[in-house]
């Protein structure tokens, strides 16, 4: 974190499953470089022995009763699907 941040935009966009145009690549590189430069100052904080906070008020082990409840009807659950057939969502072939 102490060295100048290097954001490999190609790699990160691949991880994020996000196609970027050349113009977006150039613009985001510059803008995110500025943001990362700002974020570098966090390296100055002494966090020795400090526990991380994931939630302000940790609520752990929330259990629900294991009972069946009515869910959405299939038609309602699939209403927003971009493509469907026979109560199934249609997707591109993933195995040749």
């Amino acid at each position: 974190m102490s060295s100048a941040p290097h954001l490999d935009l190609d790699h990160v966009a691949k991880l994020a499953r996000l196609a970027l145009t050349a113009a977006e690549q150039a613009e985001f590189s510059r803008q995110l470089g500025e943001v990362l430069h700002h974020i570098e100052q966090l390296a100055k904080v002494d966090v020795t022995g400090v526990e991380p906070t994931a939630h302000a008020f940790p609520v752990v082990n929330v259990w629900g009763e294991d009972v069946a409840r009515p869910g959405l009807p299939v038609e309602a659950a699939l209403r927003n699907a971009p493509a469907q057939r026979d109560h199934l969502i249609v997707v591109p072939k993933v195995v040749e």
Partner: peptide, 15 residues
């Protein structure tokens, strides 16, 4: 570790 975990620790100090 350098970004996310560190930020969560600083969050503890802010709180």
């Amino acid at each position: 570790d350098a970004y996310y975990l560190r930020a969560q620790k600083v969050r503890t100090l802010i709180r």
